[in-house]
């Protein structure tokens, strides 16, 4: 039951996110969608991955999007835009969806018996496997992140005289 509610919220929030005109409204809905997917991870027995989804996706990546949005909106009309974001109508949709998610989380935490369905995959075992047979993959991921860092630095630099 928890799974299906979270799945419906994820799909509805994603559909709303890709159909918004304003990018910040879309980000709010995308955030709700990521939180719903995190709850799905928790329910199917992967709490470690659920925490990472909230921290990395909903935390770090979304903050990056917000920063870029702020950088792009420099100008006199941005004040008017910010005033528009504070209207209650903007917040009502994401708020309703997140309140349902919080209710589900409280239900899952407060209910007797295991809240997860199916076998719980131990995060300790995930760590052991990650640095055992998949150590090469970890190294490749670190190289990928390093190249992403260098690429973002190179592309983000303003070259004088060329733009």
């Amino acid at each position: 039951m928890t799974f299906y509610t979270a799945a419906v919220i994820a799909i509805v929030a994603t559909a709303l996110a890709i159909s918004r005109k304003n990018a910040v409204h879309a980000l709010l809905y995308l955030l709700v969608s990521l939180l719903a997917v995190a709850l799905i991870f928790f329910v199917v027995g992967a709490p470690f991955v659920a925490a990472l989804e909230v921290i990395v996706y909903a935390g770090a990546i979304m903050v990056l999007f917000v920063f870029v949005m702020m950088l792009l909106n420099l100008g006199p009309h941005s004040i008017e835009q910010e005033r528009g974001w504070l209207t209650p109508r903007t917040w009502i949709g994401p708020l309703v969806l997140t309140v349902v998610l919080i209710g589900e989380l409280l239900y899952a935490v407060g209910s007797r018996g295991p809240a997860t369905t199916g076998p719980l995959v131990d995060s300790r075992q995930v760590g052991i496997d990650l640095f055992g047979p998949y150590a090469l993959g970890v190294e490749i991921a670190s190289m990928l992140l390093l190249s992403g860092l260098i690429g973002a630095y190179h592309l983000g630099r303003r070259r004088p005289g060329r733009s």
Partner: peptide
């Protein structure tokens, strides 16, 4: 990890 690297490069490209 791949999504994080992708979004960093992608947003720099967007800027």
């Amino acid at each position: 990890a791949m999504a994080a690297a992708e979004v960093a490069v992608g947003l720099a490209l967007a800027l």
